[in-house]
Design a binder for these strands. Structure first.
Length: 492
RNA sequence: CGGGAAGUGGCGCAGCCCGGCUAGCGCACCUGGUUUGGGACCAGGGGGUCGCAGGUUCGAAUCCUGUCUUCCCGACCA
């Protein structure tokens, strides 16, 4: 085996790729820009999905499924949205292949089978959904309409990176319709809070909630809100977005409802989404040079039990102790794996589960058996502890919570240490080059200054924090007065 | 899309510049045995036509052209 992970310090990008591949999350595929999510990676995604899905349902949303294809005429109806995505669309133009007369055994696109109207593979589903909402919404009694779908989307990106940006990715997209602007805005912010809750309490990923600048706004939205996370290299990663769409889509698709006074009004909209990109965030936030480090709440395997055999005589006794513990943990819904496979040696297993980020490893050999102890090793700190067998269950239960908390605290401290108030361009460039992170800067609010900032520093305005840092100062670019600091960083 | 690098058994690589015997090596794999406390050891064994397509040549992994894919940097990225 001896697959080695490139250390973070040597090559951060390579470290990230190594973790994904060696950590068994995903694989490259034969399709440009598309990846294969492997069983272990998909189990992780399923855990994230399950929790998010529960949170969506707890806030009143129902799941639906809309088609993968969007007819071009619908796609282009909301002009801003269409323009924003036009450059990265996959398009279906034909519906049939035929044998190639010039190349035996090969196929060619049948020119006779050209579609009358091209189909766009959805990069997002507002268009197809709002064309349908027109039929579903007549009265204020049909509102609010709170829907979500789990699906794949395709965005033909120039440069792809495993999980962070792939041509096809899995996500959820919430789409809601409301009678009033305020209700839609409330919904937008509510879902941003759901994302924040999920990121911080389940992924142990501290985030900053904020509003996007006009330049960074979702195409077709009035306002885009986001959560921004900091990776270990100090770069920012947008971990989730929630959009207040105003009446843009209602107008584009003519979706009106009768209010209580029997007058027709356009419907107000939101949409919000998180994707498999979150897995990339998770990997880059917590992992180390030994491999993945996963937060217990979403780890596919929370506890692994490894018996260490020595001769045939202790095998049965070891297996019995292990099975007892396994059953006890299993009954308490802890995701536990007993690896008593005789073909691989303990050292191999230790490395394997460390690489895959299993939060707790328990090993028991003849020494422990004699003293009625277990060796418990936590992945995050690698600390080893000997625990009497009868105390193990309580200890493990608490330790899972402890690791979850520790990961969040560690990431939070890092985020705080790397968040600095910066007042001049020189200072900003030094910060970004030497020990990058989130720069809190003054900005005059214009797109012009924002663009200049990017040209001069490669940093972008990540968000205008929702918990405002009110403080008067002067724009780092233009020198014009500013009343609030914004978060600037280099981003993924 | 611009610049750079790379594609050779499952994985990682050597060979390529200066074409030529049966294409090597490590890991993994299979069989048997000994083992099992941080990626075990011994013995035997199987597997590749060199990304793909075309060309040059008596002869191509090696030279030429095209093409696909991946990685890195950049541009782009609701």
């Amino acid at each position: 085996m001896a697959q080695t992970i490139t250390p973070r310090g040597t090559d951060y990008a390579q470290w990230y790729n190594d973790l994904i591949i060696i950590g068994n999350l995903a694989d490259y595929s034969a399709v440009r820009g598309c990846m294969i999510i492997k069983p272990y990676g998909f189990a992780l995604w399923e855990n994230m999905q399950q929790q998010l899905d529960k949170m969506f349902k707890d806030t009143g949303h129902s799941n639906v499924y809309f088609p993968l294809f969007v007819p071009k005429s619908l796609f282009e109806a909301e002009e801003q949205n269409a323009a924003g995505f036009a450059k990265e669309c996959a398009i279906v133009t034909h519906y049939r292949l035929k044998s190639d007369p010039n190349k035996p055994g090969k196929l060619m696109v049948d020119p006779e089978a050209k579609l009358e109207e091209e189909l766009i593979v959805r990069p997002t589903s507002e268009a197809i959904i709002w064309s349908t909402f027109k039929n579903w919404i007549q009265s204020y009694r049909n509102l609010p309409l709170l829907l979500n779908q789990w699906c794949n989307v395709v965005r033909w990106e120039m440069r792809t990176r495993l999980f962070l940006r792939t041509a096809e990715f899995l996500w959820q997209e919430g789409h809601t319709a409301h009678a009033t602007a305020q209700e839609a805005i409330d919904e937008t912010l509510k879902m941003l809070d759901v994302y924040t809750d999920f990121a911080e309490n389940w992924m142990a990923l501290p985030v900053i909630k904020g509003k996007k600048s006009a330049a960074e706004r979702f195409a077709g939205a009035m306002d885009t809100y986001c959560i921004e996370a900091m990776m270990q290299d100090g770069k920012a990663l947008q971990a989730g977005t929630s959009h207040f769409l105003g009446q843009n889509f209602a107008k584009a698709f003519d979706v009106k409802f009768s209010n209580k006074d029997n007058t027709l009004e356009y419907v107000w909209a939101t949409s919000w989404g998180v994707s498999t990109r979150l897995i990339g965030a998770l990997v880059m936030a917590h992992s180390d040079d030994q491999g993945l480090v996963l937060p217990p709440k979403i780890a596919p395997i929370q506890v692994v039990i490894i018996p260490i055999f020595k001769g045939e005589d202790t095998k049965e006794a070891l297996n019995t102790v292990c099975l007892n513990l396994y059953n006890q943990l299993k009954q308490s819904h802890i995701r536990v794996k007993l690896d008593n496979n005789d073909n691989t040696r303990p050292g191999w297993k230790f490395n394997e589960y460390e690489t895959q980020g299993v939060p707790i490893r328990i090993s028991i050999g003849s020494k422990e058996l004699q003293n009625n102890h277990l060796e418990i090793v936590r992945r995050d700190t690698k600390e080893k502890t000997l625990i009497p067998v009868e105390d193990a269950f309580t200890y493990i239960t608490n330790l899972l919570i402890g690791i979850q908390t520790n990961l969040f605290e560690k990431a939070k401290v890092f985020q705080q240490q790397r968040t600095k108030k910066i007042n001049t361009l020189d200072e900003l460039n030094t910060f970004l080059d030497q020990e990058p992170g989130f720069a809190l800067i003054h900005w005059d609010g214009t797109t012009e200054s924002e663009e200049k900032l990017q040209t001069l520093t490669k940093a972008t305005i990540r968000c205008i924090p929702l918990e405002p840092i009110h403080e008067s100062g002067f724009c780092i670019i233009s020198g014009k007065p500013s009343s609030q600091r914004v978060v600037a960083a280099r981003a993924y």
